[in-house]
Design a protein around this nucleic acid. Sequence first.
DNA 1: CGTCGAGTTGACATAATTCAAGTAAGGTGG
DNA 2: CCACCTTACTTGAATTATGTCAACTCGACG
Lengths: 245, 245
Amino acid sequence: MSGSCFAERLNHFVNLTTVEREALARLEERERHLRRGQTLRRENDDADEIYILRHGWIMSFVFLDDGSRQILRLHFPGDLIGSSNIAYRDAPESLTALTDAVVCPFDKSALKVLFEQHPRLAALLFAVSQAERVSLTDRLASLGRTSAKARVGALLLDMIHRIRFMKKDVTSTFDLILTQEEIGDATGLTAVHVNRMMRALVEEGLIERRNGSVTIVDERALSRASAYTNRFAALDTSWFPASRG
Amino acid sequence: MSGSCFAERLNHFVNLTTVEREALARLEERERHLRRGQTLRRENDDADEIYILRHGWIMSFVFLDDGSRQILRLHFPGDLIGSSNIAYRDAPESLTALTDAVVCPFDKSALKVLFEQHPRLAALLFAVSQAERVSLTDRLASLGRTSAKARVGALLLDMIHRIRFMKKDVTSTFDLILTQEEIGDATGLTAVHVNRMMRALVEEGLIERRNGSVTIVDERALSRASAYTNRFAALDTSWFPASRG
DNA sequence: CGTCGAGTTGACATAATTCAAGTAAGGTGG
DNA sequence: CCACCTTACTTGAATTATGTCAACTCGACG
């Protein structure tokens, strides 16, 4: 029953039944391969598709009228992406691959079956989306109320935590992937200032850099300096309906 | 079948059946009255309750370590609030009344019944929460990539649109309610700078102020200047399961 | 009548941006 | 294998947006 990294991720929170796994597997029947830099879809596209990210990293972002870009969220394997047009017919955000990537597109009508026949999965989806919401509010507080250095630090911490969540090895080193311009677009800064803040973090002994990889040297101090809250507590599944089948 | 402003709001999107209305009414059996300034719950409270806001305005916010505050969202009648701890046991955000308010608290276990017996309502809840998510990403772009003046303008526009959505009269004047300090905490600015930006907007003829009320004079220009996107399009309900009963 | 919270204003300080010029690394065509 | 591009990163100097501090007004309220 491997193959579905979405099921694998959801299985962190509840023990999926065979029937539930099958239902999830049906969302991942098709595959689409993307090369780094390739755009999966653009703002305002009329899109009925939602995607499960299987391999690689993808970012969602919007452009403002003046040409500036805001990166809304980084997506990792196991994430449900493009979910915002569960609500809307037109995509409110663009999706572009940060690395070579594989996604599984499915039509949003597939959710209908899920909600009808697998209430526990529906509840789980809902809970996961609420957790994503909290993650967004954390970023809102970061952009609204913390310094440039703290924003960059918080982004790095978020990345390492999410990487650890996927692979269980407790590493402190990871491939940055993002350019400094992209880090700026995620944190609301200019590339130049991101550069300065990264070296400041290095000078203060909080991180190290080698080629394209970053090591979190003093995670405790960095977390404090960046006002970072770790939200990787278990989901509260107590209210979920029983599984069917 | 009045009384439930939650049902009333959801009825904007689908025609609720009698059975569905009854299920929703069950979420609003209890009432709790709050006075302006009163806190409904605090960050880190162990909270099993979720609320439907019936009257008045409420804000959700977090405090950072340095004592600064970020207002995450303004809530209006018909909103589901405290929904973030559908995912978590401990509340990630505080809730405080901006005006005298009435909320209907219900235990999150009540959602279980909803997901089991009313898949269409569950789908609707999910879609509404995705729309909220998009609203949060709009704010993220506002804080990350627009000027102080634009952020204040966008907040005012968001308020007027949400007020219009509740009451159908197409007014351009509303009671601001928020202090300039609160506007600052919502937009990531200081109270002093909010003051300057508001008067700049007045001088440019975009808004007017009288006592505590604000009038949007030139909505088109203000929307452009604030990079504001109106998301009050209809929800896409095409994928919803059929209603039961 | 005095106090308090909110709004207003000016002078000054600071964080972040802009502009400009450079370096380093990787990829490509000859 | 070299010469040439291109893209990302780096750095300094000047500029601008926003924050800080402090003083004052005004209206509400007890």
